[in-house]
Structures are given as C-alpha cells and as structure tokens.
Design a protein around this nucleic acid. Structure first.
Lengths: 209, 209
DNA sequence: ACCTGAACACCGTTCAAGT
DNA sequence: ACCTGAACACCGTTCAAGT
C-alpha cells in the first residue's frame, strides 16, 4: 500500500478539497482521516482540534489572495486586494460563511489586511480615516460576497411563481415585480461599480484633496 | 408538576433564548427539550427537523423588524428598514451568522424585503434599478453587521501588542499603526454615514432626477 | 516518535410502544 | 392524538496501548 506522508499541510489541503467538493458538513475528523487513508486519531498529531483545523483551512484560502505590488498606485492597489478577496471567496463558496466570520488574525489574514491598509495610508489618509475607509470597503465586499455565495437572490425569484412561505404573493407585490431582476444580474460588473462608488467616496477623505 | 404546553411557537421561543444566552452550539434538540421539561422526541411533533427549527428561529427574529409605514417618504423608509435590520441583528448577535446566510424566503423575510423594495420603487427607480439599489444597500448592511458582530476588528488591536499569529509585527507595520483605530470606533455613527453615502448614490438613479 | 483501536460523552433522528 | 424510551448511526476527543 502507498505510504501516507501526514503533515499539517497535507491535512489542511485534504480538508479544503473535501469542503470544496461536498460542503462544510462533510468535513468530519473521521471522514477526513478516511480520505487520507489514515486512522482518525492520527490527525491529532498534527492539528490540536477541529476548530484549529478550520482556522488553518481559512488561512490557507486567504493565502491564495494575490497581493498587489507595494508600488501599485494606492487606490488601484485597494481595488486589487478587494477584487482578489472576492475572486478567492468565489473559488471556495462553501467556505465563505467561515471566511466571513473569521477575523484576520492568521498570518495570511494579517498580510492581506496590511496590504489594504498600506494602500489607503499611501493614498494620504491618516490612520483614523484609514480605519474608517477600510471598514466601509470591507463591509461592502464581505456583504456582497455573502449575498452572492449564499444564493440570497435566487429564492426571491421563486416567490414570484411558487409559494413555499406561508404568505400570499399578492401580499408582496414589489417582491413579485422586482424578484426576477434580483435574481438576474451581472455580479462582476455590479461589484466593480460598488467598489468604484466606495473608493470614490473614501478617496475624497485624503487630506488636502 | 407544571403542565408544559408544547407548540411550535413555544419551541422557537425557547430555542432563541438558548441561542441568545449560550450561543448556536448550545442549541441541541436534547438540550432544548430539557429546557422545556419535555422528552427530546416530543419536539418532533411540532418541528420536522433541526434545520427547520433554525429557519423558524431566524424568521421569528426577522419578524422583530419594525417596518415603516407605507406612507413614509421613500428614502427615509429605506433607512428605517436598514437601521431596523441592524438593530434586530445586534439584539441577537449569536444568530447573525445564520441571519446573514438565510435568503429572505420566510414570511417575515419576504415582508421585510417587500418593505425595502417598495420604498425604492416609490422613490421612482424602475424594477431593474430597484434590484441594483437593493443589492448595493443590502451588501453594505449585511457586511457591516457581520463585521460588527463577528468581532472582526477586535483582534487586530491585539496584533499591535500580542503575537498569536506566526508572523512578526514588524512585517505588518500598517496593521500595527492603524489597528488601534480599527478597534476603536463609533459603529452607530459609521453605519448611518455609510447608509447616507449609499442611499445618496442610489437616489441619483431615479429617472428624471 | 508517531500512529492506532477502544472507549466516552455527546449528536440528530427512526420507530415501536405507551397513554 | 400526543408524547415517550430505546436504539441506530453518527460526532469530537481522551487515553492507554502498540510499533
């Protein structure tokens, strides 16, 4: 039989594959061990707990974010980080609930945060305004990706035709009217537009602008 | 012994109390039954499954959102719905991950969506632009509440002093510099400002404005 | 040193039995 | 009709034992 080289790296990689392929609920220590051809308890030699494993998986995905060169013009750099956050998230939609919940305390999260903050600081905002600008753009990006990956707008479409809530469609005429437009959209384009709007706003906060 | 009146309403209410008091992971069918002084399996007479129970709890919380009078000036009505969404979410922070993930397919979710869409339509945006406007403001609101309830900015503060990620603080100077400002903010004020910015933008989309 | 099986204290849910 | 206990197929994790 093939020899299994167990390591934290290998475990995290297998865990991510499992989540990508079958969802978060498919990731159990037993199933993951089986996937690696190893006894369940062998995992605990490399990962202290399942929660730590999840943190590691989120950090691994965060590390996929390609950070802009530090010499990139500031607002373009912020655009790149934000765009990359969404690109990587869409690559692992099953992990998005965890990504969104996880503060950037891991090494990859801190480097990503550093890149975004550096861009805004280089653009001329002072530390306090930089924090404000980051919270605003991050709120938009995280909410957008949450809605996009959560299929938030898909069932609304159904509300115009099916009834699977105990409510008459005639009671929500605007949902019936706008529902189809909620479900049918160009997410790429709308993300860019939203980003433009917000970066346009915060760029006005630069001292002396 | 006191007679327990079991009903879906009573079960959902007890489930919400449990989640509010001890978090999502404390909500198990066994624990919930014990809390109600009832056998575990009695719950299944009123709720088909645990997932349905969670949907019901989210719907119950969504129903706490106080919708504006239909005669309220449109943009002020949208502000009220958005503000109420945040107020109710902050009242049940442990439930926020679920609220954020849950498309508005329940009766309360549909009525809330209806209220927001009605406001934008009354302001003069056509259905397609209404959908765009809703997605933009909802992205902001959901992302903001996610970050706020997730303690997203708290650990960043620590990064300036403690080391609990395998990374040198000197490698993230901007995090060290801006971190304290990220953690120290007036969330109420910033939410209002962000809402103002976005509603200001979408109000410009009205035909003939 | 690294890996393992059995065991413990939990889960959600099915089902046949009680009242 | 409504509630229940035992049982089933799972969990994450501890621990003593293997190599």
């Amino acid at each position: 039989m093939t020899r299994i080289l167990l390591s934290e790296e290998a475990i995290l990689r297998a865990a991510l594959s499992l989540v990508d392929a079958e969802g978060l609920e498919a990731l159990t220590m037993r199933r993951l061990a089986a996937e690696l051809g190893v006894a369940t308890m062998s995992l605990y030699g490399h990962v202290p707990t399942k929660d730590d494993l999840l943190l590691g998986v989120v950090n691994m995905v965060t590390a996929e974010i390609r950070l802009p060169d530090p010499a990139t013009p500031p607002w373009e750099a912020l655009r790149i980080v934000t765009r990359e956050f969404r690109r990587v998230s869409l690559g692992h939609p099953n992990l998005v609930p965890l990504i969104v919940r996880q503060p950037p305390t891991g090494s990859a999260g801190l480097l990503t945060l550093e890149s975004a903050l550096d861009a805004v600081r280089r653009a001329g905002l002072d530390p306090a305004m930089t924090a404000k600008a980051y919270r605003l753009t991050a709120s938009f990006a995280i909410g957008f990706v949450s809605l996009e990956c959560g299929g938030f707008f898909k069932p609304v479409d159904v509300a115009a035709g099916e009834t699977f809530a105990p409510i008459d469609v005639s009671a929500v005429p605007r949902v019936a009217e706008v529902g189809p437009y909620l479900a049918d959209w160009d997410a790429d384009e709308e993300f860019e537009r939203g980003m433009d709007v917000l970066i346009g706003i915060v760029s006005g906060w630069a001292v002396g602008s």
